[in-house]
Amino acid sequence: MLVLVVDSSTPAVTAALVEITTDGVAPRAQRQTVDARAHGELLAPQVDAVLAEAGARPTDLTAIVAGLGPGPFTGLRVGLVTAATMGQVLGIPTYGVCSLDAFGRATAGAGRVLAASDARRREIYWAVYDTSGERLAGPNVDTPAAAAEQAAELSVDVAVGEGAQRYVAQLDLPLLAEPGYPPAYALAELAAERVLAGAPGERLTPLYLRRPDAVAASTRKPVLP
C-alpha cells in the first residue's frame, strides 16, 4: 500500500512516500526542508517531488498519514489542510498521528525519553515516552523549566527533538542528536495498523494546545474620525 506522509508541526516541512505491508514500513521517497516561514510554499512541491521520484501518481495512493502536532497554528494548518484536501479529492482515508509520538517510536529502547519541539514564546511542546515508545505524559506546552520539573518527576533519562536541542541547558538532560524532527517513517508505523485494516478515515483535528496569536477584534472600530 503506497501511503503519503506529511508533517508541518515543526520548522521542518516533511513529505514522504512509504510502502506499508504486513512486513512493515518501507521508505520510497522523502523531502524535508527546515524553514519555519515557508510551510505553505514548500509542502505541495515536496509532495509532487516524492511522487515523481517514486514514479507514482496521486491516484496510486492508498491513504494519507498526517502529523497532528502539537505545533504553531499557521504551519500546522498547512499540512493538515493539504492532507485533508487530497484525501477528499482522491477519495482515500486520512489518518492522524500526534507528531511527538513519532519521536517516542523512533527512540524506543533508549529509556524514558522527553520529546520536545519549539513552541516559540520561549516555550516547548513536549511529551514523555517509556522505553517501548508509549506515551506517559503530554502532549503539553510549557516553559523548558516547567517541563524539566515534570521530567524529573517521571525519571526521564534523555531528551530528543529540536526543542530539546534549543533548550538543552534548561532541561538538564542528556541529549539524543537524532531525530531532530518527527521522522516520517515513524509516523507511518504509528498509523500502519489502521492503514492495513482499511479503517475509516479520520478527521484531522490539530493539536494546537493554545490559542493563535491573531484574534478577532473585540470592538468595532469607528469608520469616521
Rank of each mutant, 00 (worst) to 15 (best):
G55E: 11
P11F: 00
Y129I: 14
V113I: 07
L204G: 00
L171R: 09
L68M: 07
A164L: 08
R211Y: 06
L196E: 01
A214V: 06
A44G: 10
A197I: 09
V13D: 04
D142L: 15
P27H: 02
V25Y: 02
P212T: 15
V97Y: 00
E134W: 04
P222N: 10
A137I: 08
Q32W: 04
L171T: 15
T14I: 14
T21C: 14
G163N: 10
S132Y: 08
T85N: 15
V25E: 01
G163L: 08
D101E: 10
T219K: 08
V89G: 12
E162N: 02
D101N: 11
G40Q: 13
L176K: 11
E19C: 07
A216R: 00
V47A: 12
P182L: 09
R166W: 01
A84C: 15
E162I: 11
R210W: 15
V3N: 09
V25D: 03
L76S: 13
S8D: 11
Y95T: 01
A12D: 09
R77Y: 07
D157A: 05
R105G: 09
S218G: 09
S8V: 06
A147I: 05
Y167F: 14
I20H: 00
T131P: 13
V5R: 00
V6S: 03
T107C: 09
Y129F: 02
V78Y: 01
T107K: 10
R37T: 06
Q150C: 00
G111M: 08
G104N: 12
L207Q: 08
R37P: 00
Y95P: 06
V25W: 01
N140C: 02
A26I: 09
Q88L: 07
R112G: 13
Q30D: 09
G104H: 15
P58N: 07
P206V: 10
S155L: 13
P179Q: 14
R31M: 04
R77Q: 05
M86Q: 13
G75Y: 03
A151M: 12
R135G: 07
G75K: 00
E41C: 10
P72A: 08
T205A: 11
A186F: 02
T94A: 12
L190H: 02
A29G: 07
P45I: 14
D130V: 02
R210E: 06
G161A: 14
D60H: 00
Y125L: 15
L90G: 01
I92C: 09
D23F: 05
Q32S: 06
V215F: 10
L136W: 03
E149H: 11
A191E: 10
L176I: 02
G79P: 03
S8H: 09
L42I: 14
P11K: 05
L224G: 04
L4V: 03
V3S: 03
G71N: 07
P58M: 13
G104L: 06
A116L: 03
V34A: 09
G138F: 10
D60G: 02
A137K: 03
